[in-house]
Design a protein around this nucleic acid. Structure first.
Length: 487
RNA sequence: GGCGGUAUCGUCUAGGGGACUAGGACACGGCCCUCUCAAGGCUGGAACACGGGUUCGAAUCCCGUUACCGCUACCA
C-alpha cells in the first residue's frame, strides 16, 4: 500500500446537469473513502460554468444523493462559476509569462478549416498561425479591440504521469493541439477552470472517470506553466449498462435517487458500487462503510469498465437488509409503510414488539424495502387479497378444503393459549385425524391461503401469531364462507 | 481517421512466472433442510480474445492483431 506523503485533499466535481448518476456516486465514494482512510479532506466542487445546462435542481439533487449515501464533504462547497475572476487571472498569467498567446481566428474560420481538413481525410490541428503574428500586428489588433481567445502553447516533448490505476500513461505533445483556455468573452474553458480550482483548493489527488484521461496531459501542462505542484492522478474505469454501452437512461434507473425509491439501502448501494471497479481481495464482498474505509486501497482498483448488474445489487441489498440494526430497519421501512397507507407512525410505535417480530420474519424473505412493504400489507389490513393462482392450486377441491379449514378452525379455537408450540401440536394432531399424518403440509397450505391469500409466507405458526387469534380465526371463517358459497 | 485506454466464467472479480486440473460472488440447474417462500448448507455447468515472442516454465512479461470504450468543441 502506498500511503500518501502529505495529508490528502480530494474532490468530487460534478456538473449540475442532471441527477447524481451511479457513476458519479462511485467516483465520489472512492474519493471519500481515500480521504477518510488517510485522514484527509473530501471536498465538493460544483462545476456550474455551463450556464446553459446547469440548474439549481440538479445541484440540489446531487446534494440529496450524496446525503442519502452518507458521503459528507469537508469545508464549504465550491461553486466553479463563482471563481471566474481567478480563472481569468490565471489565464492572464499564462499570457504574461509567455506560455500562452492570443488567437484571433474566429470560430467560423476554425470550423471551416476543420471541415476542409476532414474533407481531405486529414485530422485537423490548429496550425499556430496566430502565434507567428508580428508583435506590432498583435498590438494593432488588440488596440482595434479585435476579439481573441487565449491559447496555450503546447511545448515539444512528451507529457506523462504515473496514474494510480493505470501506471504510466504518456502522450506525445505533438498530438495535443494548442488548446484554448479563455474564450473571446473572457470566460475560461473547462481545463483552465479545473486546474485553477484544483490548485486553489490544494488538491493532492485527482480521482475521476477515465473519460478524462485525454484532458490530463493538457492539465499537467497548465500546472507546469502556472508553476504549481502536480497532484497525483487516478483514472477510474467507466460503468456500462448490460449491453456494454455507457450507462444511460435507456438502461433504466441510473440515478441514485431511483434506487432509493426502489427500496435499496444506501449501505448496499455503496457496497455494490465499491465492488464495481475495486476489490479488497480475499473474496470479501459484503462490507459496511467502516470496513470499506479500512480495506480501501488504490492497488485494488480495476482498469476495466464494469457493467452495472441490477441482480447483484438486489442480492447485495438483501444481505444488508439482514445486516442493519432493528432501529435502522425501522427507520427505513416505517416511512414506506406509512406512505403505502398501511399504518401510522403511532400504530407502529404502539405495537413495537409486534412490529419488530414482523420485520424479523419479512426481511429474510425480502431483497428491498419495497418487498417488505408488499409482504407486510396483509398483516395490517382486515380483508385478505386472494391470489388467484394460490386459490386455484391450494383450494382445488373445495369440499375437502372446507373440511380441513373447519377442522383447523376448531382445533385453533379450542386452544387455551395463542402460542406457536401449542398451535403446532394441535394442528399436527388434527392433520392426523384428517388423514394427513405425515403430510401436515396438506393442511398448512390451504390454511396459508386462508390466512394470507398467497402461497408463500413466513412459517404458518409465525403467521398465526403475527395475525393474532381474532384475526386468524376470522380469516378462516371468511375463507369457509367463501368456499361454501362457491360450492 | 488520429490519439489514448481496456481485454479471466453471461455479469462483478481473485490472480501480479511455477501454489491453476484458474478461486469466490451474482445469475442459472440439482440436492439437503422444510408447512410454502426465502435464508442457509452442499453441488453442477460456465472464462484466461487471437497470434507471435521472452523463459526450463506465461492467465501473469514484451510485441502485433482484433474487439470494445473514451477523447478528438470558444461542452463539462
Amino acid at each position: 500500500m502506498s500511503s500518501p506523503a502529505v495529508t490528502p485533499r480530494l474532490r468530487f466535481a460534478p456538473s449540475p446537469t442532471g441527477y447524481l448518476h451511479v457513476g458519479g456516486a462511485r467516483t465520489a465514494l472512492f474519493n471519500w473513502l481515500y480521504a477518510r482512510k488517510y485522514g484527509g479532506q473530501f471536498l465538493l466542487r460544483v462545476e456550474d460554468t455551463d450556464k446553459a445546462r446547469s440548474t439549481d435542481d440538479s445541484t440540489r439533487a446531487i446534494f440529496e444523493g450524496l446525503a442519502w449515501l452518507g458521503l459528507g464533504w469537508d469545508e464549504t462547497v465550491v461553486y466553479q462559476g463563482a471563481k471566474l475572476e481567478r480563472h481569468r487571472a490565471d489565464a492572464q498569467r499564462l499570457l504574461a509569462n509567455g506560455t500562452a498567446y492570443r488567437c484571433f481566428c474566429s470560430q467560423e474560420e476554425l470550423a471551416q478549416r476543420r471541415a476542409d481538413a476532414e474533407a481531405n481525410g486529414e485530422s485537423f490541428k490548429y496550425d499556430r498561425r496566430c502565434d507567428r503574428l508580428d508583435p506590432a500586428e498583435i498590438d494593432r489588433r488588440v488596440a482595434a479591440a479585435m476579439p481573441f481567445t487565449v491559447r496555450f502553447r503546447v511545448p515539444e516533448g512528451t507529457t506523462s504521469w504515473e496514474d494510480l490505476v493505470h501506471e504510466t500513461i504518456a502522450f506525445p505533445n505533438k498530438d495535443i493541439e494548442d488548446f484554448i483556455v479563455l474564450r473571446t468573452d473572457g470566460t475560461p474553458i473547462y481545463n483552465m477552470a479545473v486546474v485553477s480550482d484544483d490548485i486553489a483548493m490544494g488538491i493532492t489527488l485527482v480521482m475521476r472517470g477515465d473519460d478524462h484521461i485525454s484532458n490530463t496531459p493538457k492539465q499537467i501542462q497548465l500546472y507546469r506553466a502556472l508553476g504549481a505542484e502536480l497532484p497525483q492522478f487516478a483514472h477510474l474505469p467507466m460503468i456500462h449498462g448490460l449491453d456494454g454501452k455507457k450507462l444511460s437512461k435507456r438502461h433504466g434507473a441510473t440515478a441514485v435517487g431511483d434506487y432509493r425509491h426502489l427500496g435499496i439501502l444506501p449501505g448496499a448501494m455503496l457496497n455494490f458500487l465499491a465492488l464495481l471497479g475495486w476489490s479488497p481481495g480475499n473474496d470479501i464482498e459484503v462490507m459496511t462503510l467502516e470496513q470499506m474505509i479500512a480495506l480501501f486501497d488504490t492497488a485494488g482498483l480495476q482498469k476495466k469498465a464494469a457493467i452495472f448488474d441490477t441482480k447483484k445489487l438486489e442480492w447485495m441489498n438483501g444481505q444488508h437488509l439482514n445486516l442493519v440494526s432493528d432501529e435502522a430497519l425501522i427507520s427505513l421501512v416505517s416511512p414506506a409503510l406509512v406512505a403505502a397507507g398501511l399504518a401510522t407512525d403511532a400504530e407502529l410505535t404502539d405495537r413495537r414488539a409486534w412490529y419488530l417480530s414482523l420485520l424479523a420474519q419479512l426481511k429474510v424473505r425480502a431483497r428491498t424495502v419495497d418487498d417488505i412493504v408488499r409482504q407486510a400489507a396483509t398483516y395490517f389490513r382486515d380483508a385478505v387479497a386472494y391470489d388467484a393462482d394460490a386459490v386455484a392450486k391450494q383450494w382445488k377441491d373445495r369440499t375437502a378444503t372446507a373440511t380441513i379449514l373447519r377442522g383447523v378452525h376448531d382445533a385453533l379455537a379450542a386452544l387455551p393459549v395463542w402460542e406457536p408450540a401449542a398451535m403446532e401440536e394441535a394442528l399436527r394432531m388434527r392433520a392426523g385425524q384428517l388423514g394427513f399424518a405425515e403430510k401436515a403440509g396438506k393442511i398448512f397450505q390451504p390454511l396459508r391461503v386462508a390466512l394470507t391469500g398467497v402461497s408463500a409466507s413466513p412459517g404458518i405458526f409465525e403467521v398465526l401469531e403475527l395475525l393474532g387469534r381474532d384475526r386468524s380465526l376470522a380469516r378462516i371463517e371468511a375463507a369457509l364462507a367463501l368456499l361454501d358459497e362457491k360450492i
